[in-house]
Amino acid sequence: MTAGFHRIAVLGLGLIGGSLVQAVRQAGIDVVGYDTDPATAAAASASGFPVAPTDAAAVHGADLVVLAMPLPEVARALQSLAPNLGSNTIVTDVGTLKRPVLEAVRTHAPHAVFVGGHPLAGVEDTGWGAADPLLFRDSPWALIVEPETSIEAWLKLAGLVCDLGAKPVPTTAADQDAAVARVIGLPHVLAGALAVTGLAGGPLGLSLAAGSYMSGSRVARTRPELVTTWCDDNPALVAALDDAIAHLTSARTALAAGSSVYPLAAEGHDARINWEHRRFEPVELSASTAELVAHGETGGWVTAVLRDDDGVRLLGMRPVG
């Protein structure tokens, strides 16, 4: 365990926040939760977890504050919290999009020591009842590095993420948002389209729906208001949709001409198989902004943050070839 945080406050006790509260307790760190929804707060309390009556009470004495509420609530939460944050308290979040959160921090809590975060570990179920302390195991966790980011704060947070079994991926907010447009936003839009198109096939099609339909439309079960927070206000999703539409149009044109969808099927098959069979090698990194961002750009992540008399060393993994 890295020498890190002593008391963590998690504001928002849904799937991600609830899982984080449980995982942090299992890691042996003092943790307190807070949620604006009385039913959620009561459920967490009934499960044996400390829940503060106000956000101010939750962050009192905390050296890490995690914003785990939906994106539309972040600005209001920051306004309320800013006067109660200690000068050395680190603030992070778990939202899918990072640029809007950075803008909210710069506007409402400009003096906060902020490191944006995004654990890519969600499932289609939501709420405290879906929380799982093992949710983050082996999952990537984007940690944002911007010119104003405190590297010491980033390292402490990366150490915690490693302790929780996740894989910290250093990246800028813009690069992160562009990437998740293709691997989170686009899959949700396509799943919605598939679910609606399948329904239009009538009762027979739905009675024959099996693995392909269920797998392809699985994330369409996600609450629509959450999907919009992951997709709206992300211009990179437009380009991702353009690419997907171009592939679909090509397949449609081929079928209409009596040809085959084989080119798209083969290209998609190779893309998926190559992703599954990537190989990685261990590396050692310096704690510099430029090297961290470059490591993330190559698809690498951090595996450990080590401190000794000579300073800080970072171990990581990166793709080979």
Score class of each variant (00 low, 15 high):
residue 236 A to T: 00
residue 236 A to V: 03
residue 236 A to Y: 01
residue 237 L to N: 00
residue 237 L to Q: 02
residue 238 V to H: 13
residue 238 V to A: 14
residue 238 V to D: 15
residue 239 A to R: 12
residue 239 A to P: 06
residue 239 A to V: 14
residue 239 A to T: 15
residue 239 A to W: 13
residue 240 A to N: 00
residue 241 L to R: 01
residue 241 L to V: 15
residue 241 L to W: 06
residue 242 D to T: 15
residue 242 D to P: 07
residue 242 D to A: 15
residue 242 D to N: 13
residue 243 D to C: 13
residue 243 D to W: 11
residue 244 A to M: 11
residue 244 A to V: 05
residue 244 A to G: 08
residue 245 I to H: 13
residue 245 I to M: 15
residue 246 A to R: 10
residue 246 A to Y: 08
residue 246 A to L: 11
residue 247 H to E: 09
residue 247 H to G: 05
residue 249 T to L: 10
residue 249 T to A: 15
residue 249 T to H: 09
residue 249 T to E: 13
residue 249 T to C: 08
residue 250 S to G: 09
residue 250 S to M: 08
residue 250 S to E: 13
residue 251 A to R: 02
residue 251 A to F: 04
residue 252 R to P: 00
residue 252 R to H: 09
residue 252 R to Y: 01
residue 253 T to E: 14
residue 253 T to Y: 07
residue 253 T to M: 09
residue 253 T to F: 00
residue 253 T to H: 08
residue 254 A to E: 04
residue 255 L to C: 05
residue 255 L to V: 06
residue 256 A to T: 04
residue 256 A to N: 04
residue 256 A to I: 02
residue 256 A to M: 05
residue 256 A to Y: 03
residue 258 G to A: 08
residue 259 S to R: 07
residue 259 S to Y: 07
residue 259 S to V: 05
residue 259 S to Q: 13
residue 259 S to M: 09
residue 260 S to Q: 06
residue 260 S to N: 09
residue 261 V to H: 03
residue 262 Y to R: 07
residue 262 Y to I: 00
residue 263 P to D: 06
residue 263 P to Y: 04
residue 264 L to V: 05
residue 264 L to H: 00
residue 264 L to A: 06
residue 264 L to K: 01
residue 265 A to H: 06
residue 265 A to E: 09
residue 265 A to W: 00
residue 266 A to C: 06
residue 266 A to P: 04
residue 266 A to S: 12
residue 267 E to D: 13
residue 267 E to V: 03
residue 267 E to M: 09
residue 267 E to P: 02
residue 267 E to K: 07
residue 268 G to F: 07
residue 268 G to K: 09
residue 268 G to R: 09
residue 268 G to C: 14
residue 268 G to L: 10
residue 270 D to L: 11
residue 271 A to T: 10
residue 271 A to L: 12
residue 272 R to L: 12
residue 272 R to H: 13
residue 272 R to S: 11
residue 273 I to V: 15
residue 273 I to E: 15
residue 274 N to E: 13
residue 274 N to A: 14
residue 274 N to R: 13
residue 274 N to T: 12
residue 275 W to F: 15
residue 276 E to H: 15
residue 277 H to R: 12
residue 277 H to W: 11
residue 277 H to Y: 14
residue 277 H to P: 03
residue 278 R to V: 11
residue 279 R to N: 10
residue 279 R to K: 10
residue 280 F to T: 10
residue 280 F to S: 08
residue 280 F to Q: 05
residue 281 E to P: 05
residue 282 P to Q: 11
residue 282 P to N: 12
residue 284 E to S: 13
residue 284 E to C: 07
residue 285 L to Q: 06
residue 285 L to G: 04
residue 286 S to G: 12
residue 286 S to F: 09
residue 286 S to E: 14
residue 286 S to A: 12
residue 287 A to G: 00
residue 287 A to L: 02
residue 287 A to W: 02
residue 287 A to D: 03
residue 288 S to D: 07
residue 288 S to Q: 05
residue 288 S to C: 07
residue 288 S to I: 02
residue 288 S to Y: 06
residue 289 T to S: 07
residue 289 T to K: 01
